[in-house]
Amino acid sequence: MKTLGLIGAGNMGSAMLGGIVKAGLVKPENITVADLYQPSLDRVKAELGVNVTTDSAEVVKNCDAFIIALKPNVVELALSPLAELVREDQLVMSIAAGKQIAQLEAIVGADKKVIRIMPNTPALVSECMAGICANKNVTKEELEEVKTIFESFGEAEIVTEKLMDAVTGVSGSGPAYVFLFIEAMADAAVLEGMPRPQAYKFAAQTVLGSAKMVLETGKHPGELKDMVCSPAGTTIEAVKVLEDLGLRSAVINAIHECTEKSKELSK
């Protein structure tokens, strides 16, 4: 695509734009960003050199594709007045949690090219994980092009729409679980006498390195866990406590409830 638009210039939208511009996928002068909050527009213009406007219609009129980077509860309100401007050859992408393709088609038309995406906040540091699905009007080549865009600031996988609620549960909301875990680890280190800034660094780097081992070695997480647990050692004592207190069940139940909430948003 030669031109790209963004409706919504919040943290997620700005993070995505930064990755796209940095990767050189679309030139800044060919990107138009719309938002009603002028300070956000001033920031993305200064940082990325993109075109900005408070009129979302300008985005739809001037771009080959555009991303709706808004909260689910305002998508219909923002998109409905623009529906007549959407062209059949234009890619309409949404990152709104729980908003199904059928709901977006009901606004812009079932004959339009609609793509649903669930990224996450690590896009801010170019480590996004995004799930992508599309309606029947989107070609395989177009879907791969969108995947390439989201891979410019992390990783992306094409999934069926029925898995998008699970994507929300495990990766869309997942950073919050990880932050909670890091905070708990750091609190424990502080309890043992470590200064808090140092505790956060030890905990966060440990999580980062462990995740990298899963991705780069291809080994099962259980196998990697066993590598750390020496017989009658310190680590297995800690693992026993986590098992006794139901860490696995708590995580599974939390993601299940998050996924169910995502399903409710689509009703």
Rank of each mutant, 00 (worst) to 15 (best):
V207F: 12
G19Y: 01
I132S: 10
D244V: 03
E58Y: 04
F66I: 07
Q100F: 01
F150W: 11
V114R: 08
T121L: 15
K263H: 13
K99G: 00
T139Q: 04
A250P: 00
L36K: 12
L70H: 02
D165G: 02
A232V: 12
M164G: 11
L143Q: 06
M129R: 05
D89L: 00
V86W: 12
D111L: 03
V60Y: 09
Y37M: 05
A176S: 14
A83N: 10
N137A: 08
T160C: 03
G174S: 02
P81R: 08
K240A: 13
K140F: 03
K263M: 14
V138N: 09
C133W: 06
P122S: 01
C128Y: 01
L85G: 04
T121I: 15
A134M: 01
M185Q: 08
C133S: 14
E141R: 07
E264W: 02
E47G: 03
I101P: 02
E243G: 03
I132M: 07
V60C: 06
T53F: 10
L6R: 09
E29T: 10
G5H: 11
R87V: 04
E260G: 03
A110G: 09
P28T: 00
C63P: 00
I252M: 15
I7Y: 04
I117Q: 11
T53A: 07
N51P: 02
L208V: 09
N51Q: 15
G5M: 12
E216N: 14
E84S: 15
I7N: 07
A232F: 09
I20P: 06
M129D: 06
G5V: 08
